[in-house]
Design a protein around this nucleic acid. Structure first.
Length: 777
DNA sequence: CCCCTGTTCGTTTTT
DNA sequence: CGAACAGGGG
């Protein structure tokens, strides 16, 4: 292996450059702190990188520097991230900066790197190298089975809750024997601890690991097998960790073990992060890890990156002032050299959340008229229930938007079904996959048949597929089921055989066809079936780049996100959490009301720590803006169906007054002023001015008028106008499409006559409406 | 076995 | 108020 071979000295070019004291090109343009962070390769290093201070550039340049100076082979560098997105971004940049690589650095998420290590030493943690990685779905089903076996009432003790506890334990690095009695005793009247043991035992039988296990079993591997750990100590000369503030205890232990090859004060470990952007405490992240780094690694060098290249001075001032209210920070203050402070932050209080949506819509259109692209604008909300009103408003306006988040591609039912087939082909012992597809499509194999198979599997201690093989040779099954199962087993054997020679993307197509899955979708007249077929095509396309089935399955279980390659110009709507790491010229921060943001629940559950995390979220939100940040709050918002009034977020009071401009859409209803009514002077002359006269509303009306022509609003008149407008163009809707209507809500198209559509609305029943009144749902 | 109805519950999300 | 889910009935 190249890892241990002596490193050649840098080639001619760099040496000459050094003699002339010319720095390598890649250092050009870095500020002194960034340069320091790149060049300090030896010993522990903590880089505190504030928002927009060029963190990613430092990380990648640092790796490029190591490779360029031949400090290490590529494969001796370990770079860890939290998300696949960050990992692939890093890979891309390294490839750009270092065209010829001697061995690829290990770049990936904690989980993918752990999986890679575990596959090499699987036997040492009672797994086979081909072990399956379970997703949340499988996990829940497995837990349900255990609950049933233990006679635990699933209503009283939901599987999801236990999954959450398991996750929390694993995040804390706790094996079943390590769980404190108080913790394990809580669930199902003391059965929690036993369930954890049972769960782990079951995973071993299934030859499977869940996400938490990837880390936990890796830790166990290192602890119980010092010689294996030593191997990695020799291997990894340099370690880098991105977003260190997001690391949880298990990840921390994992890193500590890997860094133990040298005394702590000499470990070449570089962690990059920002304690002010730690927003994942609720899922186990320990800000403490970053706060403690200097004592964990004595003599660690600390470099602060505070020079911001993203936002205006006003934005930075606002963010810095708010975050300064937190205690227990390492302390950084962002600054910029740009003289112009830029627009002040705006804060607007409106009457209710509907008006907030109108306001945002209007402002977006205004900026758009000024030549800003929709892509450069984003609305960041605390929770996704806030998105709906925005979306509805934008539909009315005909404003193109994109929602980030939501259900992911690989979590869709049809994709999971297809994956289950593939898993079972690759891994005949994958019982969870077996159970998932045994009767999908319907084969007349109901609960009773499955129960018989399960019983045999238990008895014989074999996987379900093997149990099925045995059962079809006996007289225990009804003839019909026996034939069906015999054929199914034969099919799987056949597919497994083909998997050896056929590219995975062709295999999946054949499986879906031969299993009857495609026929099932074809027979399905529901709205979704067409989309499902397309998703499956997309799956096959995504598989084209994989040569082996195993390679694809590994990728899929670790990379659950789909890359949105949406080229159209659209405003982004997303949560503050998913906005971390992104930037936009204009950022709208809506719903800044106490209770919504900061979230009441956070404060109730986690007290002061909760509030501080919310404040960091505010900091993240504000620092997403390059040119302008527009904050709003509603006096009234509908929560759980009822209207509730609220006062502006306490974070509003924490904003620096001289960087903020308060405007008020004077409401006729009085309500709460800002800062004791200081904003009242901004009230409009006529407090009763109708909101329906706002530019946005007028435009919405104009849009609708354009779409339907200027004829009378009768069916007939409209029909004529439409047919003229559209010429020969046919309806852009199809039977079964899910659509949205302003008054009637969501519905499904039952029939189409010209532009007259019969729609079955979920709420309002079946109505005939004009195409121009609906939009795609 | 599927559909319908009643019930429950109501941040944030990755791997 | 409305989505999601479980359980019962047809």
């Amino acid at each position: 292996m190249a890892d241990t071979a002596p490193l050649p000295r840098p080639q001619g070019g760099p040496i000459t450059s050094q003699l002339h004291r010319r720095e390598p090109d890649y250092l050009a343009g870095l500020n002194p702190e960034q340069r320091d962070a790149v060049l300090t390769t030896e010993g522990p290093l903590l880089v505190l990188a504030g928002a927009g201070t060029g963190k990613t550039r430092v990380l990648t340049t640092r790796i490029a520097h190591m490779l360029n100076q031949r400090l290490a082979w590529g494969s001796q560098i370990l770079a860890v991230t939290f998300t696949n997105k960050a990992a692939s971004e890093m890979k891309k940049r390294i490839h750009e900066q270092v065209p010829s690589l001697d061995g690829l650095p290990w770049m990936g998420t904690f989980h993918s790197i752990s999986a890679r290590i575990l596959r090499q030493h699987a036997e040492l943690v009672d797994l086979k190298p081909t072990f399956t990685i379970l997703d949340t779905d499988d996990q829940i089903r497995l837990i349900k089975q255990l609950l049933e076996a233990e006679n635990i009432d699933e209503k009283r003790w939901p599987a999801r809750q236990f999954a959450g506890m398991l996750d929390a334990w694993k995040n804390r690095g706790l094996l079943p024997k390590d769980v404190p009695a108080a913790d394990s005793g809580y669930f199902a009247n003391g059965k929690g601890g036993k369930l954890y043991y049972d769960y782990q035992a079951r995973l071993k039988v299934l030859n499977a690991a869940d996400f938490g296990d990837l880390l936990l079993e890796c830790i166990r591997l290192f602890r119980e097998n010092p010689e294996v750990l030593a191997e990695y100590h020799r291997k990894f000369k340099y370690m880098l960790v991105d977003e260190y503030q997001d690391s949880n205890t298990a990840q921390y232990l994992w890193l500590r073990l890997l860094a133990q090859g040298k005394p702590a004060s000499e470990a070449n470990i570089c962690v990059v992060g920002d304690d002010d952007q730690s927003i994942y405490g609720w899922r186990g992240a320990e800000v403490d890890n970053i706060l403690r780094f200097e004592s964990d690694f004595p003599g660690a060098k600390v470099i602060k990156l505070e020079r911001n290249y993203r936002s205006t001075a006003n934005i930075l001032k606002a963010a810095s002032t708010v975050i300064a209210f937190n205690e227990g920070r390492l302390g950084k203050t962002l600054f910029t050299d740009v003289a112009d402070a830029g627009e002040p932050i705006s804060f607007t209080q409106v009457y209710d959340s509907e008006e907030e949506a109108r306001l945002v819509g209007e402002e977006i259109e205004q900026y758009q008229r000024q030549g800003e692209s929709l892509n450069s604008m984003a609305i960041l909300v605390r929770a996704s229930f806030q998105m709906r009103e925005l979306e509805e408003r934008f539909i009315t306006l005909g404003l193109n938007y994109r929602v980030v988040g939501g259900p992911r591609f690989y979590e869709r039912k049809e994709i999971r079904d297809a994956l289950a087939y593939l898993r079972l082909v690759a891994q005949p012992a994958d019982d969870l996959a077996f159970e998932r597809i045994i009767n999908v499509p319907k084969r007349g194999l109901g609960d009773s048949t499955v129960n018989m198979l399960t019983a045999t599997a238990r008895h014989q201690q074999v996987p379900l597929l093997s149990a099925t093989r045995l059962m079809v040779e006996t007289e225990d099954l009804k003839p019909k089921q026996r034939t069906t199962l015999r054929n199914l087993v034969a099919q799987f054997d056949n597919w497994a055989h083909r998997a050896e020679s056929l590219p995975p993307y062709q295999l999946v197509e054949q499986i879906l066809e031969e299993s009857g899955y495609m026929d099932m979708l074809a027979a399905d007249k529901s709205v979704e079936s067409q989309g499902r077929k397309e998703n499956l095509k997309e799956l096959s396309r995504a598989m084209e780049e994989f040569e082996t089935l195993g390679g694809f399955l590994e990728h899929i279980s670790l990379v659950m996100d789909r890359d949105n390659a949406d080229a159209s110009d659209a405003v982004t709507i997303m949560t503050l959490h998913s906005a971390k790491g992104l930037e936009f010229n204009t950022v709208f921060l809506t719903g800044w009301e106490d209770g919504t943001f900061p979230s009441q629940r956070s404060m109730d559950e986690s007290g002061r720590a909760g509030l501080e995390e919310e404040r960091r979220l505010a900091y993240v939100g504000i620092t997403r803006g390059r040119k302008r940040v527009r904050i709003s709050a509603a006096q009234n918002r509908r929560i759980h169906g009822l209207w509730q009034s609220a006062i502006p977020s306490r974070f509003i009071d924490e904003l620096p007054p001289d960087a903020v401009e308060v405007t008020d859409r004077g409401s006729a209803y009085g309500g709460y002023g800002y800062g004791g009514g200081a904003a009242s002077r901004f009230n409009k002359a006529d407090p009763f001015e109708s909101v329906y006269e706002t530019p946005g509303w007028q435009r919405a009306r104009a849009n609708q008028a354009n779409r339907r022509g200027s004829g009378p609003l009768t069916i007939e008149g409209d029909l004529v106008a439409r047919s003229v407008d559209l010429g020969n163009q046919s309806s852009s809707y199809a039977l079964g499409d899910r659509v949205f209507h302003l008054k009637f809500g969501y519905g499904e198209i039952m029939s189409i006559e010209g532009n007259k559509l019969t729609i079955d609305f979920e709420k309002a029943g079946t109505k005939k409406v004009l195409e121009s009144f609906i939009s795609k749902g």
